[in-house]
Design a protein around this nucleic acid. Structure first.
Length: 622
RNA sequence: GGAGCGGUAGUUAAGUUGGUUAUAACGCCGGCCUGUCACGUCGGAGGGCGCGAGUUCAAGUCUCGUCCGCUCCGCCA
């Protein structure tokens, strides 16, 4: 930097402003306004603002500093005439410096207002200011319009959170939480905390375990949900409980799944489904009104689980648009086209306007459905002249063609996709293709919110891996009336008193009426292939409690993070969680999880296996 | 456990069929500038392409391995 001496004569000497970069105390200054508050009504007032430097525009003469806090931006002006000392020192100000400014609110000069700023009508003429802290140049710009890699954002999460879009998410999240508390408190629900160090109940998701120092060799588990505790609170007679509570599941992450997440957990005594669903609808409606001013329908539509799978291929249908699946198996049964005739399930999806899809797009969709186990993707295009263009129609009989056209209502311009596969595959492939096509053909109103109750879930489902029946919801869910007796004889046939709340294709809540008698609970465990001893060992305390006058009870839990994600239009749950984990469940900021000292392990009675002894470790050089 | 996409100055990205000293914009540092608001303008510094092998006369470009981030399947009562 000394190589080339400074340019022309007359140019000033290179200098440093370090002499002005002395950090000062607040010295009794108090903030009078946030950076989004000042309007024309405040003109003439002396105000004190504190915040971060968003932009500086140093004209040599006038210096403009846009000051930012979590609420917004305010333009401040340093003038060499009005406050020479303040102005001279202001040359040293840099982006993200923390400053306190005291000055007079003035109307901006004629034609100089900025309608794109909340505070764009006014500006603060700075009289004196304090440098509260300096800042290194941030690793990425603190602005919404600059996309930055998520790796960097997570490493410097505290800087990412300074960005207005993210900050707004947490302001809204707070609003939502307060709204929930107000609503439930108004209905007599008590907010009660339940343990975070609790008992491992290895039904369902993997538990996070915490070793016990005082009871060597034993472990607590972090709760996957406060399920059993909230039921016990009903036994205790506290009647109505809720909690905004962290839950933990040691499973793989997704855009909408974190290992620790927050539930709005609710339980009430003496309810039926209608009461719980009514209360839950009121909660969600209130939440939407009070946070984003959106009015949801007075009664949310409902759909049985079976219909959801039949018509939408998934158990959480996005009902913002149609495009339903159709079962066409009967048309081709016993026909000449073996692929269709012999399929365990044959479903079709007719898309109006699909004729315009290119070969490439169809190929892409074919690749897409393979994710869900599909072998391929058959299709028929109906050309403008009514002729069918397709690699497979030559195998169809006239009768089959007529019936198919009638069943699906095929008209020129359409494309029809087929899935001949096991029912799970056909549903998943076409159900997810449906979402993609809804997007491709602009069928989804991005501003709409379409809630839907999915009801009448099966009580049990078969787990081919464990070769046993497992609870679809959880093992405390009550079967529908009269079905307790048939569980043993027809485990797959029983329906549960369970309900999920789906919003725009996202599961945002789910609950059930619980089993509240010991006999029924034992019958349930038995249907799940859990022996009496095992049930006693794992859930004895619950069965015991049910013996002492447990009232009928039920409840629901909402995924708060997912709701906030929808309210803020965020693409990832990470954008509504202050300090989220990466897909490998690590924290890039703190480096958790980390190794711990031998001493810590010794105290816990834990010895780590040698890494080299790990099985599956192959490809050694030798 | 598996599939796909990505990793190049502080940041965001470009980088032809492998070919001289690796581009640009923004940011940063400094000069000038009294009405800007993503200020303008002039000048400057800054990377060897995630990491490790290999192929080649030659690798950011090809191969293999590995690490990290993201999306998805499995998993998530």
């Amino acid at each position: 930097m000394t190589e080339q001496t400074t340019t022309t004569a007359g140019a000033g000497e290179e200098r440093s402003y370090d002499e002005y970069r002395v950090i000062q105390d607040l010295g009794g200054w108090k903030r009078s306004h946030t950076c989004s508050q000042l309007t024309a009504a405040d003109i003439g007032k002396v105000v004190t603002l504190m915040g971060w430097v968003q932009f500086r525009r140093d004209h040599g003469g006038l210096i403009f500093i846009d000051l930012r806090d979590r609420e917004g931006l305010t333009q401040t002006v340093f003038s060499p005439e009005e406050a020479p000392e303040a102005h001279e020192r202001a040359h040293a100000i840099r982006i993200e410096y923390v400053v306190a400014l005291r000055g007079i609110v003035r109307h901006r000069p004629e034609g100089m207002t900025n309608p794109s700023m909340h505070t764009g009508e006014v500006e603060v003429y700075v009289q004196e200011w304090k440098l509260l802290n300096t800042s290194e140049t941030p690793p990425f710009p603190i602005e919404d319009r600059v996309e930055t890699s998520e790796m960097l954002r997570l490493k410097y999460r505290y800087l990412d959170l300074r960005r207005p879009r993210l900050a707004r998410n947490f302001i809204l999240r707070n609003k939502a939480a307060q709204s929930v508390r107000r609503y439930l408190d108004g209905l007599g629900f008590l907010e009660i905390e339940t343990p975070v160090l609790t008992k491992s109940t290895p039904e369902g998701a993997r538990d996070f375990l915490v070793p016990s120092r005082m009871n060597l060799g034993t472990f607590y588990a972090l709760p996957q949900s406060p399920q059993i505790f909230k039921q016990l609170l009903m036994v205790s007679g506290l009647d109505r409980y809720f909690q905004i509570v962290k839950c933990f599941r040691d499973e793989d992450l997704r855009a909408d799944r974190q290992p620790e997440f927050t539930q709005i957990d609710i339980e009430m005594s003496f309810p039926d489904e209608e009461q719980i669903m009514g209360m839950a609808e009121g909660l969600v409606r209130t939440l939407f009104t009070e946070t984003i001013g959106v009015k949801l329908p007075d009664a949310f539509p409902r759909m049985p689980y079976k219909q959801a799978l039949d018509e939408y291929g998934v158990d959480k249908p996005d009902v913002r648009f149609g495009l339903k699946l159709a079962d066409v198996k009967d048309i081709f049964a016993g026909g000449g086209f073996k692929v269709f005739a012999s399929a365990p399930c044959l479903k079709a999806l007719r898309v109006a306007g699909g004729l315009e899809l290119s070969r490439k797009e169809i190929d892409d969709y074919t690749e897409f459905v393979k994710i869900y186990g599909a072998q391929g993707l058959a299709w028929i295009k109906v050309k403008e002249d009514g002729e069918w263009q397709s690699p497979i129609v030559k195998f169809f009989s006239e009768d089959e063609k007529v019936k198919l056209a009638e069943r699906l209502g095929m008209v020129p311009g359409d494309i029809v996709f087929f899935q001949a596969a096991p029912v799970d595959v056909a549903n998943a492939a076409l159900g997810n293709l449906r979402l993609k096509l809804g997007d491709r053909f602009g069928l989804i109103d991005e501003k709409a919110f379409a809630p839907l109750w999915v009801t009448d879930f099966p009580l049990l489902e078969y787990d081919p891996e464990d070769k046993r029946w497992v609870a679809k919801h959880h093992p405390f869910t009550s079967p529908q009336p009269g079905q307790m007796d048939t569980i043993a004889s027809d485990p797959g046939g029983a329906l549960a008193r369970a309900y999920d709340l789906v919003l725009n294709g996202n599961e945002i809540g789910g609950g059930s009426i619980r089993i509240h008698t010991p006999a029924a609970q034992k019958a349930m465990f038995s249907a799940l292939g859990i022996s009496d001893e095992e049930a006693e060992e794992k859930f004895g305390f619950l069965i015991e409690a049910l013996k002492f006058g447990a009232p009928p009870h039920g409840g629901i839990a909402f995924g708060l993070d997912r709701i906030i994600m929808l309210l803020t239009g965020s693409k990832s749950i990470r954008d509504v969680i202050a300090f989220p984990k990466t897909q490998k469940a690590t924290c890039l900021m703190t480096d958790a999880p980390n190794l711990v000292s031998k001493k810590q392990l010794r105290e816990l009675g834990i010895q780590l296996r040698e890494k080299a002894a790990e099985p599956g470790e192959k490809k050694a050089e030798g």
